[in-house]
Computed example of a mutant assay.
Amino acid sequence: MQRRQFLEVTMGALALGAMPTLASAFAGSSLTSGDAADAAAFLKERRFLRTRFGHIAYVERGKGDAALFLHGFPLNGYQWRGALARLSPYRRCIAPDFLGLGYTEVAPGQSVAPDAQVEMLAELLDALSVDRVDLIANDSGGQAAQLFLAKHPHRVRTLLLTNCDSEIECPPPALAPVIQLAREGQFVAQWLAPWLADKALARSKDGLGGQTFTHASNPSDEAIDVYLGPLVRNPERTHAYAMSLDRNWLEGIGPKLRASKAPTRIVWGTGDTIFTRRGAEHLERSFARSRGIRFVQGARLFFPEEYPDLIAEEARRLWQV
């Protein structure tokens, strides 16, 4: 099985004439450096909160009203380092690592399925004395954000979704080979471990970077270590996370999303080979208080990491600060 299968899904033709080019959309943005000092500093900031789900790893910056940042798969809270740096003057920014990913230590026998993630997030917020949050999410973190909103609508002040699951793409077809390899206990050995060992391979067209990052220089060596190191060291929990995605967790969620009073903004990279424009349009129609879609031409799945200025701009507009 080819690694490329992980990240290929057919997209319909996109009418891009009215969309901003990468140059204009990201004018004034700067890529996060991802160098050794950056990674070391972020890891040093990481805290652990003991819960019934395990020891939840998270980074917190700023004060005041809280914003909760939910990362994608196979990433962790480090994905949001640039956004936290830009938004912490305006919010108490909290970026946890999901159960089964990153540096969170999962309790024995604990489920890492999306419904358990929602319960974990609620307990984390309770422990941090946070009542309501502005949610910002990407990839499978967007699925968790929608589930959290559906179960705890009163706890979500605003919602900013980037490329992620929707009710009509959950899970996306491209995830099928990952789930199958996880069932066979081979996902880590066949894909993640080789990428961790060979950073050039990880950034190649057949690797994590080439298929999910917009720029060929990403992710950096340090980011690859931060993201994939914990997953390779804990293959069983990594496989459990992947296998837990093998159902449509968003099925039937439409009425609860439409009932939400939280202003919602969609920011969508059109170069994504995992989630389609159709999914973005479905999400935009799902929220009664939608603030529309911003399409970013050519940007791939994990573009929020690469262009934190864009995320900060959209978040501040949504928050009206």
Rank of each mutant, 00 (worst) to 15 (best):
V59Y: 00
A262M: 07
P308K: 12
P171M: 09
D272N: 06
F295G: 06
C170G: 08
H152N: 11
F48N: 02
W249K: 06
G102D: 02
A216P: 05
M1H: 09
F303A: 11
L175E: 12
T270C: 08
L16F: 01
E105S: 04
F69S: 03
G254S: 14
A242C: 13
R316W: 08
D165S: 12
P96K: 03
F69G: 08
G269Q: 08
L228N: 03
Q117A: 03
D221E: 13
K151R: 15
R52K: 14
F302S: 13
I253L: 12
A122T: 02
A113I: 02
Q5E: 15
D139I: 06
D198Y: 03
G209I: 04
R203G: 09
V133I: 05
V106W: 02
E222S: 07
G142R: 05
S220Y: 05
G82M: 12
L147G: 07
H282P: 01
P89L: 12
A144D: 14
A223S: 14
G141L: 10
G17W: 10
G100M: 07
L250C: 10
T10D: 11
L147N: 08
D131P: 00
R258S: 14
T51F: 02
L49E: 13
Q2N: 13
F69E: 05
N218R: 14
P177E: 01
T51W: 01
R247Q: 15
T162H: 08
D225G: 10
V232F: 01
L135E: 05
S140W: 11
F275M: 05
S260F: 06
L149W: 05
R52Y: 01
S29E: 14
A312G: 10
E222R: 01
G54S: 09
L124W: 05
F53I: 04
A37G: 08
H55Y: 05
A200T: 14
R300D: 02
L201R: 15
N218H: 12
L49Y: 00
G34N: 08
A85K: 14
N234G: 00
A312S: 14
G28V: 08
Y58A: 04
E119L: 15
V106S: 06
T212Q: 11
R233V: 00
P74M: 09
T238G: 08
L121N: 08
A36T: 10
R265C: 09
P114E: 07
T238S: 14
R47G: 02
V9A: 13
I136C: 13
R291E: 15
E284T: 09
Y103C: 00
R157C: 03
F26T: 15
P304A: 12
P74S: 11
G82F: 09
Y78E: 03
D115S: 13
T158A: 08
Q117F: 03
T238D: 07
G102P: 05
P308Y: 11
R285L: 13
V178W: 07
A216V: 13
